[in-house]
């Protein structure tokens, strides 16, 4: 699709993206199945999380190592850390502020 911010990491990035996309293909459809109970969904999510780790974990480690270095070399690590501290965004933001669509 697109390239990495470091040319060196681009091949790893593409491999990782391809791996994620292949996994994601099989993720949405059963996961959104309306008939599934929350219990079934949780079980499915767990199973898929493990599957993701198994199939993409190794390439992710390689890509991550590369990109972490590149981010540091560009001096972005400090800025990223600041942004994370200011707003960790660990949970989806609450719907409230978005309730008034502008468009």
């Amino acid at each position: 699709m697109s390239q990495s911010l470091s040319e060196e990491c681009t091949p790893l990035k593409r491999k990782y993206d391809a791996c994620f996309n292949a996994w994601f293909e099989g993720y949405l459809e059963p996961a959104v199945s309306a008939s599934a109970s929350s219990e079934q969904r949780a079980k499915f999510a767990q199973q898929k999380a493990t599957e993701f780790e198994n199939s993409c974990g190794k390439i992710w480690q390689e890509y991550r190592q590369c990109i972490q270095k590149a981010v540091k070399d560009k001096g972005l690590d400090v800025l990223l850390e600041q942004a994370r501290q200011e707003n960790p965004l660990k949970e989806p933001p609450p719907p409230q502020p978005l309730d008034n669509p502008r468009s």
Partner: peptide
């Protein structure tokens, strides 16, 4: 105008199934 996209963190919440992706 987007030249590069990199994932710097990604997780799948095993309870909710929510995929969180952090990119630069």
């Amino acid at each position: 105008h987007v030249l590069s996209i990199d994932v710097v963190d990604r997780s799948v919440d095993p309870n909710t199934g929510i995929i969180r992706t952090e990119r630069i």
